[in-house]
Design a protein around this nucleic acid. Structure first.
Lengths: 209, 209
DNA sequence: AGTACCTTGTGAAGGATTTCACAAGTAGCC
DNA sequence: GGCTACTTGTGAAATCCTTCACAAGGTACT
C-alpha cells in the first residue's frame, strides 16, 4: 500500500465518527457532499480520501452507511481490539483510565503504572495501579500495542525509551514535551498548551475585516 | 502579513517550549540544527519557519535564546494574557480548571459553566462554577477571547453556537465531534479517540520490515 | 589582516496534497 | 427504452509545503 498522508487518516477517523451518528439516526446512504459538510472539507476531498483504499460508493446513489462504516473500521484497523497501557496515574492518567469512551472505541486499558507508592494498589474502574517496575514484565506478558504517556514532562522521554525497549511501537504522549523516537515507532502528542497557543496566534494575527 | 501555514505555527510553539527549557538550563545561544533536533524537524525548516516573521539570528553564531523566546512569544501573541472560559464542569472541564499549566502559559480561566445544579456553586481552584445561563452575560462582562468546550458530544455544537453568538472567535473543543463554525471563528479539537485511531492505523498499515 | 570555519537567510527546485472538471455509472420516471 | 437527475471515481492542474544549495555575514585564531 502506498503511503497515506496523515491528514487523510485523520479525516477518515472524522468520517467514521460522523457515520456512526448518522447510522444511529437511521440513515441508509450518504453522499460525499454530506460527509464533507460534516467533516469540514469538500466532496472531492472525501472521494479522493476514500479512493486511496478502493471504491466504496455507488454512482448516482452515494455510499451505504453501514458498508462504509465497516470499510473504514477495517482500513483504520479498528476491526480488532487494541490493548493499551497507561504510564502515569496522576490526574490525566487516572482520568483516562476511568474514561469509558476508551472501551467503546475498541481500546482496552490492560495496565496502569506509577512510581508513587501511594498510588500503587489503588483501583481505577477495574484496573489496579501497578508499580512502574512491573511495566516491562507486563508489556511482555500482556502484549499491549499502544502506550499512553501521562507522566510529567521531565519523565516523558525516559518513559518513552522504556516502553519502546519493551516492544511498544505506538505511543500517545500527553506530556507537553516533544519526544524523539527511533524509526518505526509512531508517536502522537495531545497537547492543550499547543492548541491554545495556535488559537492565540489566530486571534492575534489572522483577524479578518 | 501573508498567511502562515498551520504546521508552521504548530512548530513555532514547539520551538518556544524547547527554548524555555534550554534557557532554564543556562544556554545563551542555539543553532537552527539544535532546535531542529529538539523539534523533530530539519534546520532548513526551522530557518524557513522563522524567516516568515523576520530575521532573528546571527550568521555564524545562531540565535540568542532569550531573544528568540521573546520574539516567538510576540509572534504567537503570548506577550499578553488571554482570558478563557470553560464550558462544562464535568471530568475534563474540572480537571482543566484545576490544571496549573493553564496559568503559567499565559491563559487565565475567568469562568466555568455547567447546566447541572449539583455542580453550580462548587469551587475549582479559585473559580466558582456558574450556571450556564450566566454564560452570555459573563462573556459580555469579562470579555474572554477563547472558549474551551468540555461538554458531551451532543451538546457541543449548541455550546459552540452560543459562545460564538456571544462574541467568542476562538474555540478549543474537547468533545469528540467535529463542529461547524462560521467564517472568522477558529476551532481546534483535542480528541484522544482520533489520536488513538491514527495510531491503530499506523500499527495496522505502516508496519515496516 | 588574512584564513578557516560556522551558521543564517532565502530563492529555486522538488514533492505532496488539494481542488478541478468531467467521463462513466445508477436510479427513477414517463 | 429513452431521458433526466444525481453521484462517484479519477487524471490533470493548481496550490501548498518542504528541502536543497549556496551566497552572505559573522567569529576566532594566528
Amino acid at each position: 500500500m502506498k503511503h497515506i498522508a496523515e491528514p487523510t487518516v485523520r479525516r477518515l477517523t472524522g468520517y467514521l465518527r460522523f457515520l456512526e451518528a448518522f447510522d444511529a439516526d437511521g440513515h441508509e446512504t450518504i453522499s460525499s457532499g454530506e460527509l464533507a459538510r460534516a467533516g469540514g472539507t469538500t466532496s472531492a476531498q472525501v472521494r479522493k480520501d476514500l479512493s486511496f483504499f478502493g471504491s466504496f460508493g455507488k454512482r448516482g446513489l452515494g455510499y451505504g452507511v453501514k458498508d462504509l462504516i465497516a470499510s473504514l473500521r477495517e482500513i483504520l484497523g479498528l476491526d480488532t481490539r487494541w490493548p493499551v497501557v497507561i504510564v502515569g496515574a496522576g490526574k490525566i492518567g487516572a482520568a483516562l483510565a476511568q474514561y469509558r469512551g476508551f472501551g467503546t472505541h475498541g481500546f482496552d486499558v490492560v495496565g496502569i503504572y506509577d512510581t508513587d507508592p501511594a498510588r500503587v494498589g489503588t483501583h481505577l474502574s477495574g484496573v489496579t495501579v501497578r508499580a512502574d517496575h512491573d511495566l516491562e514484565g507486563d508489556i511482555a506478558a500482556l502484549a499491549p500495542r499502544i502506550a499512553v504517556l501521562c507522566v510529567p514532562g521531565e519523565a516523558a522521554q525516559a518513559a518513552l525509551d522504556r516502553v519502546v525497549a519493551a516492544g511498544i511501537r505506538a505511543v500517545l504522549n500527553f506530556a507537553p514535551t516533544s519526544l524523539v523516537a527511533p524509526e518505526g515507532v509512531t508517536v502522537r502528542a495531545v497537547n492543550m498548551a499547543t492548541e491554545l497557543e495556535v488559537l492565540a496566534y489566530a486571534l492575534t494575527n489572522e483577524a479578518r475585516d
